[in-house]
Amino acid sequence: MKNPLLRFCAAGAVLLASLITASAADSKLIVAMLPKSKGNAYFISCKAGADKAAKELGVQLLFDGPTDSNAAKQNEIVENWITLGVDVITVAAENKEGISTALRKAQKQGIKVLTYDADAMADSRSFFVNQATPQGIGQTLMDEAARLVGEEGEFAMIVGSLTAANQREWQKYVEARLKEKFPKMKLVAVRPCDDLKDKAQSESTALLSANPKLKLIMAICSPGVPGAAEAVKQAGLTGKVKVMGLGLPNENKRYVHAGVTDSVILWNTGDLGYLTIYAGVALAKDELKKGAKSFKAGSLGTFAIEGDNILLGKPFIFNQGNIDQFDF
């Protein structure tokens, strides 16, 4: 054992071996929850609701996902859960087709599969906990934007990335709604911010000076809203250029109070997590079956089911009046 490397390896092996802990055979139901990306505040608040539900129901919650939105990683994590033999898998799909192969495999092994936030192919899951259809989000965003600027003028969009599937979908419906309802409004630019708040700020600053007639910036990724708001504030255009978008209350409170950001739209993500876990457990215990018309989820009460979609309800609009009631 002259070689230090060899000695090091031996020591390491001994250390590793001593670390082994017999995993107690847990008799709890295991529910696994896959977000699109873990670091995203949206999913963090989702997890808070899920944790609460898991505690109430006495199940073990696994929450893991890619650290950045990544379809390939999502598949790998689901496949890992299959071999871990979890009871329920709930997924916010980054890519519809991609994830569905893995989910079908899970179903074949007797694992119950639910989707939430973003759906997979219909045959690869039992239910979709639908927080709002992409169409609903697009319409709500566009209608709120139109209301803020009196249905006329130029506006620009900040998106998370040019490749994220849900962002593209929302953008599509925003544009469709624009075309159909608000002929006097014009979308002048769409800029990506790579999910970075600082980049959203730089992009918005450039947008403001490039488009002097700009009336509103709509950011549809959560770091984008405070970034755009900071740019408007620094440009001294508070009130003249409105800021709105999809985001979280805590990240936007100060801008909403300062009158920079007018409204932040979000379905209640905590409730989304809560409802998803309740539905998952009910599914595993055979209490929730195909064809059910409604579903009762703990303290949240009863939700309607339409086909195989469990509906969470309309997106929520935070503004100066109500934003302080929320802490996530």
Binding site: A71, N95, S161
Partner: peptide, 12 residues
Amino acid sequence: ARLGQAKADAGT
């Protein structure tokens, strides 16, 4: 072939 999709962010 593994993911059944081709997209610009592949392999990042």
